[in-house]
């Protein structure tokens, strides 16, 4: 549905806001979303991200969400500027300027840094979702592409186009992450919706091919959470969390905070028990904990940093 959006800004060109006259130098395209493009830009010495929308009303409702998030967060400002620009085609396009998140996408981070980062990154992601849920929002369009990871597993969510107030219909979603698509529940925004997508995201990270194949071979009426569970159960990397995934797919967690708590407890228990069938990434965690003398102490310390 983005075929009408053809705006392209060249590297090095300078964009000046129509109303507030902010000057931004275009560096490069960072990504394309369902309703716009995001560029890396420079203002004075700062690196910022510029989202340009195809539709003013669409982009403004995203800005409204970001504004209320800004109010609630109090510390980290998200939104720097909101304005219109004149494209090379002479048309006006709305844009906003936000913080630039340095980092790589979730999938490539795990590929580069190793799968032993998965439990921690996932936990950090649950923490991010928990903040949103606490403030009354649901992220909506949670998927691998919308999670950026920086050094040491620091997680940032990008593309707030799907963020929806609790109780309303999810504004934007991606089929394979969608609870409704898997006949697993409604498309109303509740914290369980995000946790469902989170579970699919875990499966997508470990078994992308099998998940893709499943969407091709299943008839719509046969899509179900148990099909998803079957992939998780048969994946060695997901075995330790398969019980957790099941609870997320069944909507048993009240919100991401509760999910994060259970995730953390799960890691803790597995590490201290030191089970023989422990996969590589858990062994890595156990070793780290060992360095901190007592395994439980290690987790306590880790808790402090989270």
């Amino acid at each position: 549905m983005t075929t009408s959006f053809k705006l392209e800004l060249r590297r090095g060109s300078v964009v000046v806001g129509k109303w507030r006259m902010g000057r931004y130098r275009i560096e490069r395209l960072l990504g394309e979303g369902a309703n716009g493009k995001v560029y890396l830009v420079q203002r004075d010495r700062d690196w910022l991200a510029m989202k340009i929308g195809a539709d003013t009303v669409d982009l403004q409702s995203e800005i409204n969400v970001l504004k209320s998030l800004d109010k609630q967060r109090s510390l980290e400002t998200f939104l720097y500027d909101v304005d219109d620009l004149y494209g090379p085609d002479g048309r006006e396009y709305p844009f906003y300027i936000m913080r630039y998140v340095r980092g790589t996408t979730l999938a490539s981070y795990l590929k580069q840094q190793g799968p032993e980062w998965f439990p921690l990154v996932a936990l950090n992601l649950l923490g991010k979702l928990a903040k949103l849920h606490k403030a009354g929002w649901v992220f909506g369009d949670l998927k691998v592409e919308n999670v950026m990871v920086a050094d040491y597993g620091h997680v940032e969510l990008v593309d707030y186009g799907g963020v929806t107030a609790k109780g309303k219909s999810v504004r934007q979603f991606t089929e394979i992450y969608d609870r409704g698509y898997w006949n697993g529940g409604s498309r109303s925004a509740d914290p369980g919706y995000d946790l469902f997508s989170f579970a699919v995201l875990c499966i997508q990270l470990h078994e992308p091919k099998r998940l893709h194949a499943l969407t091709k071979e299943l008839l719509p009426q046969n899509r179900s959470t148990s099909e998803l569970m079957e992939i998780a159960d048969n994946c060695p990397g997901l075995k330790p969390v398969s019980g957790w995934l099941k609870r997320a797919l069944m909507g048993e967690f009240a919100d991401a905070a509760e999910g994060a708590e259970a995730w953390r407890a799960l890691m803790h228990r597995r590490v201290t028990r030191n089970s023989p069938g422990m996969p590589g990434w858990l062994k890595g965690l156990a070793a780290t904990s060992g360095l901190l003398l007592a395994a439980s102490m290690g987790w306590l310390l880790l808790d402090l940093f989270l």
């Binding site: 109303w19 507030r20 003013t56 403004q60 409702s61 800005i63 409204n64 709305p94 219909s169």
Partner: peptide, 22 residues
């Protein structure tokens, strides 16, 4: 048109549109 409004005035209008749309 909503586009003709300055950006700081669009927020409330779009909030109403979103609410009615829902």
């Amino acid at each position: 048109s909503i586009e003709a409004l300055p950006p700081e005035k669009r927020g409330e209008v779009v909030r109403v549109i979103d609410e009615l749309g829902e």
